[in-house]
Design a protein around this nucleic acid. Sequence first.
DNA 1: GTGTAATCGAGACGGTACGTCGAGTCTTGTG
DNA 2: CACAAGACTCGACGTACCGTCTCGATTACAC
Lengths: 208, 208, 208, 208
Amino acid sequence: MGARPPPDVPRRRGRPRRDQATAAILHAAGELLAEEGLLAMTLDAVAARAGTSRATIYRWWDSKETLALDTIEAQFAAHIERAIIDTGSLAGDLLEDIEARLRAVQAPGMMRLWAAMLGHAHADPAFGDAYRARFFTPVRESAHAAFARAIARGEIPAETDIELALDLLFGAVANRMLHANAPVDAQFARDVVRSVMQGLIAREPSGE
Amino acid sequence: MGARPPPDVPRRRGRPRRDQATAAILHAAGELLAEEGLLAMTLDAVAARAGTSRATIYRWWDSKETLALDTIEAQFAAHIERAIIDTGSLAGDLLEDIEARLRAVQAPGMMRLWAAMLGHAHADPAFGDAYRARFFTPVRESAHAAFARAIARGEIPAETDIELALDLLFGAVANRMLHANAPVDAQFARDVVRSVMQGLIAREPSGE
Amino acid sequence: MGARPPPDVPRRRGRPRRDQATAAILHAAGELLAEEGLLAMTLDAVAARAGTSRATIYRWWDSKETLALDTIEAQFAAHIERAIIDTGSLAGDLLEDIEARLRAVQAPGMMRLWAAMLGHAHADPAFGDAYRARFFTPVRESAHAAFARAIARGEIPAETDIELALDLLFGAVANRMLHANAPVDAQFARDVVRSVMQGLIAREPSGE
Amino acid sequence: MGARPPPDVPRRRGRPRRDQATAAILHAAGELLAEEGLLAMTLDAVAARAGTSRATIYRWWDSKETLALDTIEAQFAAHIERAIIDTGSLAGDLLEDIEARLRAVQAPGMMRLWAAMLGHAHADPAFGDAYRARFFTPVRESAHAAFARAIARGEIPAETDIELALDLLFGAVANRMLHANAPVDAQFARDVVRSVMQGLIAREPSGE
DNA sequence: GTGTAATCGAGACGGTACGTCGAGTCTTGTG
DNA sequence: CACAAGACTCGACGTACCGTCTCGATTACAC
């Protein structure tokens, strides 16, 4: 599975791919996803709005979920600055990180879309792998790096269970948005970061 | 929206509802949900396996998601003992609570189903309300009561931010299962509980 | 097959039949047939308008077509005076007869209903027998009697092919109404009668 | 309403219509109509026997009645030679015409189908127009032409009421088949033609 | 230039499931 | 018994997307 958009081969024979079509499809899909959600979005509607044919979409994506994955990735890219965050303190790094994600996910229709992707990730294992590789792992890694830097400069103990910390951190935020369907503000983000750091610093090794 | 299973009215005129049919439908739906997931489950298949007609299903449920909601509720009921948990310590209460939920959610196909329900909860607000009222709020309330008891007996400070604690607690577990798609064992549950408690006890009031 | 309305047994045990129900059903069916036609008329609607239950209808009629048959028979009875027509001349008798039928069949919705009955008569042989026995044969017989009287008083030759005359007579009228969907007025009826009589009187025996 | 079989445009973009499918549908519908009649014929069954999908049928026909209309037209075409009938005498022309129609309508199941079409023609005005345009008007016109030729060559009076003659002619035949549900043989056709001609030739103008 | 190869639009097609509707049957409680 | 209420099975309906498939038209590189 998976999209095979830019194979970036040097040059092939035949009519070259019309990049405008790809962009128009992603744009149309983005609008429809925000307006109606994943389930209500039909490829017919995407094709009509993009001015292409359904066959062209199927040529480059193998399902509408994969198309949606590419679409929200393109939208996230606009919200998240890829520059490495390094404020000098762990709390500062984590807060910056979380707030950047929050800005991206609070665009209209994005929560609904996120939930739909998560649902499909559990229905289709291959899609689940792609989903995690693109939206879960990167987030986790950038936060992981922040913890590693904090250990390196002695801010937190070396034996800190970073994986646990990440689950607490992102889990709390996700829980509030996805399950409680409640808004997440900056104050909540600060509370979460402080609680997690206090819980980790004070803790003894977990091995009973 | 929502199902209207019989509110146990005393006795009405007309042919009585065949309870066996309702049970058979729920049973068939449960099997098919575990085997194929929500999206692949057809009402045709449910009706065929339950030995009823599709029309009978539509008489009592307004969508297959609502049917699924009733189905997993029936399955959860089998896993979760409703007796109030009170071990005497906050950590003990929380662990018992979490582990009870884990047992229920680790039945085959249940993760996939949970994710699908969450996805639909964000697609259909009315369904979202029903979903939270039945699967989110009860869990939260039983844990909330455990915190209240802990405050009453002086185990944790009275000004503890319980809502935050709940988000950390259940968020960490949900994050690992839903997003990381990784297993949650008893050790992880213990680590989460300990971390959250330490983070809360030591913390100062959040208001800047 | 066929309806089994009033079995007219002397007196049976149990709750006596509520004649009002039967009348209400026929009345409701008549209204609905005129308003919407046979196919669009549902037994649900009839039952609702008659204030009865569907089961009661099924108790006395075995299909909605049979119910319709009884219904239009009741309506025809109101239009057609059963007294024997005898004006003294064949042309007069035939005209009276035809015009009486026309009055009945030109009630609103009646053409549509007649066509539907005819369609069903060819779909269900048993119904076809009942239909002809009630709506075809009687008409034919009363006109046949008029011809017989004309022969008796020497108005037309004794060897007149009456069956052929009846087919020409009623066929022309039915053709115009049913097939051409055109109105039939008194002038047309007079023309038909005159043409048929001239054609028959002048003719030689048909056997080649 | 109405079917839109291919108007034979020169060449359009897109996948060309698979003519075999259209033919298979008409053939399957023809068989099923003869076997079971219009009401019992299911589009499911037609699709299954034709090896197409129900959607394809709905793409080209808007109801099963319209499909039936096309079907019997195709079958009539096989029975009726379109060559203009001109035997030199009015009686000869009319007999040829009537007997050609009789051959077509006496195929198995055709009477039942004809009656059903007539019923639907009165239930759905738009269908009624289509029905008459295809099965009523053409028959009428060819016979009308025969009368016109007879007037031209002085065989019958110029003031003959042709419309009345047509109603008598076809009405008598239709009455016997549709209403009396009796067979029509060549002798009956001859009798009808002779009677109508005698009735018309001898008659005076109808205007009082 | 003239293939050759690829893309794109349009749109028909077989399929599957949907949600609805009506027919006809059955099972209660009430009169 | 008759009747109302109403739950039930069955089967067809017409619709909506899906994913696939032919087409004709277009556009480039390669010979």
